[in-house]
Design a protein around this nucleic acid. Structure first.
Lengths: 200, 200
DNA sequence: GCTATCGTACCGACCGGTCGGTCGGTAGGG
DNA sequence: CCCTACCGACCGACCGGTCGGTACGATAGC
């Protein structure tokens, strides 16, 4: 029989992410989830410790991915403008590749227990710090204008909401460009008229 | 005895918005809600038709408010840059004034039934059309550069996420400025260096 | 001024159903 | 023979919602 082994777990993760994204964590019952995966309760709990643990794993996956790739981007010796553009396109790619998990990541924070909240918050903070660092560096060397960085908090929301609502009408690369064009023009110092986001 | 009459209904609306924003619609039980309002089930259902109807009313309130004020803004004969700035500050004020309801509006769309979804979607569309119209006008008369308008879909997400996550550390006017500065610089044509969002 | 009547605001016991989770069991490959 | 993968009956708690009843202020008849 196929579909045995470790990939059942993956199937559970994928299907749940989809369901949680569409109907919310509390809005999705176990039985509904079981139907989607094609498993009984016994099978499910053989792989997953609890519904909340499942939610936590769904949320870790996408943020960990961009956390790693942002390290790679920050590690290069490119200028701040390039780094910012790379952060943006990377985030766009990640969201396009796994939009369901990202939607869950953004919306279901409040469904987590105390410990889960702390773990997710820590990763979120770390990731946004990468953006803040690039923005601050660019402001320090004159590439960017001096900015109040409060808007950085909304980078994730900005991307995810664009992807969730505009996905059907527009391909993901166009969405990323659309966001990054405004962001880069909004951030770059008038003296440096590079701008217009081009994908690498 | 006080707290009789129509204001009980208002108390229910306010308390539910707060609870739904913190824990989600499905994540908030009726009994929890009742405790917060200080009412029994009978009292609650005397004022409210159903839990879902309650959700719908919470969501209409904030969007209807900015829908009205955006009409006023679009009706003036100011230039597109000013109109855009006014749309932004107005939205910022509205969100600061009723952040809980706005959070619910953004997060709990999927908890709505078929009819509710359609009604909310219609208002959302109408409001974003105001932004699109200003952006398109500005692009037509040279105030703004030519833009792919896909990012407009995320205006609401952009604001709400900034407010939800950065509220504790930063006052709402600063947040609005922070967002609008990036947005205006990102959107204005290089030839027109007005920018820097100032509140009226 | 007294009481009968009515409508509004509210109570809490109770309903059927669903929730997340447990457990005893089994099929089958190594 | 055992271990992995899975099944589904079953659990108590809790869900949103209903319903019969009541406290009380206002109005009306006399």
């Amino acid at each position: 029989m196929p579909t045995r082994g470790e990939d059942t777990r993956t199937r559970i993760l994928t299907a749940s992410a989809e369901l949680f994204a569409r109907q919310g964590y509390h809005g999705t019952g176990l039985s509904e989830l079981l139907d989607a995966v094609g498993l009984g309760k016994g099978g499910f709990y053989h792989h997953i410790a609890s519904k909340e643990q499942l939610l936590l794993e769904i949320m870790f996956d996408p943020i960990d991915r961009v956390l790693h790739s942002s390290d790679r981007i920050l590690g290069t010796d490119a200028d701040a403008t390039t780094k910012l553009r790379n952060l943006g396109t990377d985030l766009g790619h990640a969201m396009a590749a796994d939009l369901a998990a990202w939607t869950v990541f953004l919306r279901e924070y409040s469904a987590l227990g105390h410990d889960g909240k702390a773990q997710v918050l820590k990763r979120r903070q770390e990731y946004l710090d990468r953006w803040r660092r690039v923005l601050a560096d660019g402001a320090a060397n004159g590439e960017f204008r001096e900015l109040d960085l409060a808007f950085v908090e909304s980078i994730l929301g900005l991307f995810v909401y664009t992807f969730v609502w505009a996905r059907e009408s527009t391909p993901p690369e166009t969405l990323t460009d659309s966001i990054m064009t405004v962001l880069l023009h909004g951030v770059c110092a008038p003296a440096h008229p590079r701008s217009t986001a081009k994908r690498d």
